[in-house]
C-alpha cells in the first residue's frame, strides 16, 4: 500500500509570534513539524506496519521545511518530497493544494493522509481542495481508521458522536489529534533518516503558475477585547463572590 502523508512546518506553538511590517507572520523563529501532522505520520506508519507498503512525506515550504520531513523520516517514513519555490511564499489554500496535488499525483498513492487543520491558524481548507484536485473522495475528521483490502472505514467525529464512513481506495483522509499517539524517533531511526531521500522540486517542475491570491488584506484593526473585571485571590471568600455574581446574573 502506498501512503502519502502531507506534512507542514509551522511556528512552534510554544513560542511567541511576531508580526512583520507587511502584516505577515514572522517566520524567523522556532519552527516544528505540525503536531497534527505528526499524528498523520503515526497513522501512516501503523497502516504500513499492518498492510505493508511505503510511507512518503510531502511538504510545501521553504528549504528548512526539510527538517520537518526529516523528523518524520526518523519516525520511520520511507522518503520525502519538498516543494520549495520563492514564488510560493504566502501561498493561499488553493495554491497550496494545487502544488501538493501536482507533486502527489505521479505517486498514485492508495491513501493520502492530512491533518484536520494546521497549527498556524489555518483552517483545514487544504485537504478538501486536495481531494478534489486528486479526484478522490475525502473521509474527514477521522478518529479511527480501518483498512480491509481495498475498503477503508473511518470513525468521523461529529458534534454529538461519530459517523462510520466507508470508501474504497484511493482516498484522502484527514485525522484528528486523538487518532494515534506519535512515536518518538529512536536513535536508530534518526541515524537511518540521514540517508533517506528528500526530493526537492520547484513550481516549474510541477508545471504550475502562481495565480491571483484569493484574498488581499486591506487592513488590520485591534480585536475587540472584553475588559478585564476583577481578579481576586481565593482567600476563603472567593466562593461567596462567585455566588454573588451568579445571583446578579439571575442563574441562582
Amino acid at each position: 500500500m502506498k501512503i502519502v502523508v502531507t506534512v507542514k512546518q509551522v511556528p512552534d506553538p510554544n513560542s511567541v509570534t511576531v508580526l512583520e511590517s507587511d502584516n505577515t507572520l514572522s517566520r524567523d523563529k522556532e519552527v516544528v513539524l505540525d503536531p497534527g501532522d505528526e499524528c498523520g505520520i503515526e497513522e501512516g506508519l501503523q497502516l504500513k506496519e499492518a498492510h505493508g507498503g511505503e510511507v512518503i512525506l510531502v511538504s510545501m515550504g521553504p528549504e528548512r521545511a526539510k527538517d520537518a520531513i526529516r523528523k518524520g523520516l526518523s519516525m520511520g517514513a520511507d522518503r520525502g518530497v519538498l516543494i520549495s519555490d520563492p514564488q510560493l511564499a504566502g501561498a493561499d489554500a488553493l495554491l497550496t493544494a494545487r502544488a501538493l496535488a501536482a507533486a502527489i499525483k505521479p505517486e498514485s498513492p492508495d491513501i493520502v493522509i492530512c491533518g484536520t487543520e494546521s497549527y498556524d491558524g489555518s483552517t483545514g481548507m487544504v485537504p478538501p481542495m486536495l481531494a478534489e484536485l486528486l479526484g478522490v473522495p475525502q473521509l474527514t475528521v477521522a478518529k479511527k481508521v480501518e483498512v480491509d483490502g481495498s475498503t477503508i472505514k473511518i470513525h468521523r467525529q461529529t458534534s454529538d458522536g461519530y459517523q462510520v464512513v466507508e470508501g474504497a481506495i484511493p482516498v484522502l483522509i484527514t485525522v484528528t489529534a486523538g487518532i494515534a499517539e506519535p512515536r518518538y524517533a529512536s536513535l536508530k531511526g534518526i541515524m537511518a533518516a540521514r540517508s533517506k531521500e528528500i526530493k526537492q522540486i520547484g513550481l516549474g517542475d510541477l508545471g504550475i503558475e502562481r495565480g491571483e491570491p484569493a484574498e488581499t488584506i486591506e487592513g488590520l484593526t485591534q480585536a475587540e477585547t472584553r475588559k478585564a473585571g476583577s481578579i481576586i485571590q481565593d482567600d476563603g471568600t472567593a466562593v461567596d463572590r462567585i455566588i454573588q455574581v451568579l445571583a446578579e446574573a439571575k442563574v441562582i
Binding site: A93, P128, E132
Partner: peptide, 18 residues
C-alpha cells in the same frame, strides 16, 4: 468545510474561512 473546499477547487477560486 468539506463542501466549500471541494467546490472552490472545482471552480478554481480561493476562499476565506473562519
Amino acid at each position: 468545510r468539506d463542501v466549500a473546499g471541494r467546490l472552490a477547487a472545482r471552480l478554481g477560486v480561493g476562499l476565506i474561512s473562519n
